[in-house]
Simulated scan of single mutants.
Amino acid sequence: MMRTAAIDCGTNSIRLLIADIDETGALTDVERLMRVVRLGEGVDATGRLSDAALARTFTAAEEYAELIVRHGSPAVRFVATSASRDAENREDFMSGIRARLGVDPEVISGAEEAALSFTGAVSVLGAAEDETVLVIDLGGGSTEFVAGDSSGVLASRSMDMGCVRFTERFLHGDPPTRAEISAMEAEVRSLIAVAAADVPLGTVTTLVGVAGSITTVTAHALKLTEYIPERIHGAVLSTAEVQAASADLLHSDRARRASLPYMHPGRVDVIGAGALIWKCIVEAVAEATQGRVGGATASEHDILDGIALSVARRGK
């Protein structure tokens, strides 16, 4: 048994997983936490990480550092994604993390982000030999498209569209106006077409979605009375159910979204954009497969699990 610590720092949230991993690669959670720090706030417009966003992120890193020590100081891997890739002052971020956690943060490429997301998702859901799984990791600044089978990743593409980036770029009304939604949807569909040139959607047999926007849409469709990971993980929604839940979230005003019992406070402002991106992807896969894939599976296991597993492999 090996204990590892994985930290995923994205555009919207920073998450920690401390886990025990056995000889078969099975992972058991010791701690799994998320703090919404909105590191990528304003990056799309300014190209810089703001002082306030850095301060929020460093506070969360200090909390995580204490937990890692409390649980025996296991090997740590800190992975940073879209917002850090885009920021011209990312060295300020990297030096601040190094000072607090004693590790060098890895600002990974979109391709590696996709591979880690795929590993994390299929580590629990699995993939049959004759199955091509498309994993969608819908983050705050980017969305990863990664197709693979039981042998591993076959193709991937990272696109600069995410719930924070596209909320800031397109959705300003409360609720968003029809014109704002139309403009965003046109851009999303254009970017899906670009991704599909590298990741052929028509070959997919199973669609899996990971990360908070997708699990929140799933919770909304299931009409949960609170956020229950066990109910969300592995839940299969039809295309029609995704469309209905996404449209309802997108057209709700902020007060109604905030009142939903499963809505994380840090996701209230950006869930509309996340829901619209997810709806468009599910529709695109259904169309490309001529209805063979008429829905999607939600996974609570994602890039964070992939990072933890990668630490274990390094330690062998």
Rank of each mutant, 00 (worst) to 15 (best):
311 V>A: 04
242 V>C: 10
49 L>G: 10
88 E>T: 15
70 R>Y: 01
182 S>Y: 04
290 Q>M: 12
222 L>V: 04
245 A>L: 13
222 L>R: 13
296 A>G: 08
50 S>W: 04
16 L>R: 04
172 H>S: 13
52 A>Y: 00
70 R>L: 06
134 L>I: 08
139 G>K: 05
60 A>N: 04
25 G>N: 08
271 I>P: 00
259 S>G: 14
14 I>E: 05
128 A>W: 03
180 E>A: 09
135 V>N: 08
94 M>W: 00
76 V>P: 00
141 G>D: 05
72 G>M: 03
73 S>K: 01
311 V>L: 10
57 T>S: 15
186 A>H: 07
233 H>L: 10
73 S>L: 02
217 V>D: 03
17 L>N: 02
27 L>N: 01
298 A>G: 06
56 R>C: 01
270 V>W: 03
94 M>F: 01
36 V>S: 09
283 E>A: 09
108 I>V: 13
26 A>Q: 13
262 Y>S: 15
44 D>K: 10
236 V>N: 02
106 E>A: 12
287 E>I: 09
298 A>Y: 01
65 A>Q: 10
131 E>T: 08
217 V>E: 02
251 H>G: 01
260 L>C: 07
50 S>Q: 13
123 S>A: 15
217 V>A: 07
190 S>W: 01
227 Y>R: 15
201 L>H: 07
3 R>I: 14
254 R>K: 13
126 G>L: 10
63 E>A: 06
34 M>K: 11
233 H>W: 07
241 E>I: 07
166 F>K: 05
39 L>E: 03
110 G>S: 06
168 E>I: 10
202 G>F: 02
126 G>S: 09
261 P>V: 09
95 S>Y: 00
23 E>P: 00
89 N>F: 00
173 G>S: 10
283 E>L: 11
233 H>R: 07
52 A>H: 02
114 A>E: 06
96 G>M: 14
252 S>K: 10
313 R>T: 12
190 S>Y: 03
169 R>T: 15
